[in-house]
């Protein structure tokens, strides 16, 4: 599982803390940011989150990678709020947003995928009375993780076949065979799930 995922290996306190506890703290923080709408509070939140990144020894580059996909939208929001209600308001809205995005990312950056799966399964346990099946949720997550490389291989094979036939510019000539092969793969996987006793 180490080859997948965004986990940044390390041995800081945050790395060693149980994934479930980190998720719980994140949840509390997420609720808190709803009430975090004054600039001093926002600044404290940002400083705390940046401090946590430093504590976990996660570098600036990794930190910026968490926000970079949002820059166009953040810019738009910044311009909008500055124009409508001034730069302080813009800072408050964006600061709270960025603090929460970074805090949430930090949980995944410091927790291996397998630990997150276990935390989700454990968190689902109290929901059993409501009809949830924690083991099945865990099974679905691991099956999903398994299907990512499986589909990546199919994509490569189908695009090679498309290349060989000289039709590499057609979306349809790519997607239809890809999905049909994915469906066949699902049939085979379903059969082996039965053979390995998943319907127990």
């Amino acid at each position: 599982m180490r080859s997948l995922g965004l986990y940044v290996p390390g041995d800081s306190f945050l790395h060693r803390a149980p994934a479930g506890a980190k998720l719980l703290v994140l949840l509390v923080f997420g609720v808190a940011t709803v009430f975090l709408n004054q600039w001093p509070g926002v600044t404290v939140a940002l400083v705390v989150v940046l401090g946590l990144y430093a504590w976990a020894r996660i570098g600036w580059r990794m930190l910026f990678a968490q926000i970079r996909p949002l820059w166009a939208l953040l810019l738009f929001v910044a311009v909008f709020h500055t124009w409508v209600s001034g730069p302080v308001r813009a800072y408050e809205v964006l600061g709270a947003l960025i603090a929460l995005v970074l805090a949430a990312a930090l949980v995944t950056l410091t927790s291996p995928v397998s630990a997150m799966v276990d935390a989700v399964v454990a968190a689902a346990r109290p929901l059993r009375r409501l009809g949830a099946d924690p083991e099945r949720i865990g099974l679905m997550l691991t099956l999903g993780i398994r299907c990512v490389p499986l589909m990546a291989v199919l994509v490569r094979e189908v695009s090679e076949a498309q290349w060989a036939r000289g039709a590499q510019r057609s979306v349809r000539a790519f997607a239809v065979p890809l999905i049909v092969r994915a469906l066949r793969q699902a049939d085979a996987l379903g059969e082996s799930l039965v053979a390995r006793g998943v319907d127990d």
Partner: peptide
């Protein structure tokens, strides 16, 4: 027990 031709569709866990 059952073993299929393509082990890829049989491997369930990561």
């Amino acid at each position: 027990g059952f073993c299929f031709t393509d082990p890829d569709s049989q491997i369930i866990m990561p």
